[in-house]
Amino acid sequence: MFDMRAQNANLSLPDPFLIRTHFRLTASLHLFHVGDVSPRDGPRPSLSLSRKSQMNLRYLWHFVPKVIRVQCYRVLIKIGELVFPPPFAGYLYRLPFGLYARRSPCPPSNEVEALRLVEQYTLIPSPLFVDEYQAETPVLIMTALPGKSLVQVYHRLSHPQRAQLSKDLKNVLLQLRHVPNRTLHAFANAHGGPLNETPLRLETYGPFELISDFNASLAYRCKRNETKEKISKVHARQYRSFFTHANLHPRNIIIENGCLSGIVNWDSAGFYPEYWGFTNIMYGARWNRAIESIMSDVLTEDSSYEEELAAEKLLWSDF
């Protein structure tokens, strides 16, 4: 509650009913307006080129000796620190010429291989791997994607845009299934090493030959026997292995002008059970109803893993 007073005591104040009515109408009109407005404030790369042009420039750039390339990257990082906003979380640097540099405490070999696989076998919009080198920590150089994360702009997406985004995300997951598994293991990261699926654990695990071993690694960390009993039915099933992003959090989904611009942060990608990509997208969306609605629409009849999702939610609450 609040008090309204006029500077002139002789003037009458508007009826509170009119104030409440105005508030409700303007709130509704704002929602209608959102339906006609697309988010257009995402940062664009400082040099906007087609993907084909970027690939051609990368090819030519690698004729330059690596020692010279590394010196150029160091100069670009210094320029980026002066020109662009501070690095995200202290490790992601925006550079001139439509590039990003990411420092990592661990070698970026899995993300490098994942980006190569996505580029070779799919049409998914994602950063192009450009280069890597060792500084104080490993540094990965990649191309930028225009736009902002879904977390930042979801409230400005119209209902048709949200519906289209759900379709686009499902298409991303289905395209990833076309990536062949050339590793020696059924369930492994992009180059056949241990998995690092970040939403559930911080350490690596695997690789595995059998789905039963993969599921056992999940059940091993359960704190409650009740959880193990409830998920045992789902974990008793046999599943195929498919390539998936494994960390499709809303912050890794980039939106520009109301449309999917691309998917970033592929360091957890690998070969997981077939349901993993569809259930994993719900992890980062579970605290936001609007985003959760977008993600849940990805789970349609022909890719429904409702029981698997229920089992995953039990695991999320138990870890």
Rank of each mutant, 00 (worst) to 15 (best):
Phe2Ile: 00
Phe2Tyr: 00
Arg5Leu: 12
Ala9Met: 13
Leu11Thr: 10
Phe17Asn: 05
Arg20Gly: 01
Thr26Ile: 14
Ala27Met: 07
Ser28Gln: 08
Leu31Met: 07
Phe32Met: 13
His33Pro: 06
Gly35Thr: 01
Arg40Gly: 07
Pro43Ile: 07
Leu47Asp: 05
Ser53Ile: 05
Gln54Ile: 06
Gln54Asn: 14
His62Gly: 04
His62Tyr: 02
Lys66Trp: 10
Val67His: 00
Arg69Ile: 04
Cys72Thr: 15
Arg74Tyr: 05
Leu82Cys: 13
Pro86Asp: 07
Ala89Arg: 12
Ala89Val: 10
Leu92Thr: 14
Leu95Ala: 08
Leu95Thr: 09
Arg102Ser: 11
Cys106Met: 15
Pro107Cys: 06
Pro107Glu: 14
Glu111Tyr: 02
Glu111Ala: 02
Leu115Gly: 02
Leu117Ser: 06
Glu119Trp: 09
Tyr121Met: 09
Ile124Glu: 03
Ser126Cys: 15
Pro127Val: 07
Glu132Tyr: 14
Thr137Cys: 05
Lys148Ser: 09
Leu150Trp: 00
Gln152Ile: 12
Val153Gln: 06
Leu157Cys: 03
His159Cys: 08
Ala163Ser: 10
Asn171Trp: 03
Asn171Phe: 05
Leu173Asn: 00
Leu174Met: 12
Leu176Phe: 05
Arg177Val: 08
Leu184Met: 15
His185Ile: 04
Phe187Ala: 03
Pro199Ala: 10
Arg201Ser: 08
Glu203Ser: 11
Thr204Glu: 03
Gly206Lys: 01
Glu209Gln: 13
Phe214Cys: 12
Ala216Pro: 02
Ser217Val: 09
Ser217Trp: 03
Arg221Leu: 06
Arg221Lys: 09
Lys223Leu: 08
Glu226Leu: 04
Thr227Phe: 05
Ser232Arg: 10
Ser232Leu: 04
Val234Asn: 02
Gln238Met: 14
Arg240Gly: 15
Ser241His: 01
His245Tyr: 09
Asn247Val: 12
Asn247Ser: 13
Leu248Asn: 03
Leu248Gln: 02
Leu248Tyr: 13
Ile254Asp: 00
Asn265Ile: 00
Asn265Glu: 14
Ala269Gly: 11
Gly270Pro: 07
Tyr272Leu: 07
Asn280Thr: 14
Met282Asp: 02
Gly284Ala: 11
Ala285Glu: 05
Ser293Glu: 13
Asp297Phe: 04
Ser304His: 10
Ala310Asp: 13
Glu312Ser: 08
Leu314Gln: 12
Leu315His: 01
Ser317Asp: 11
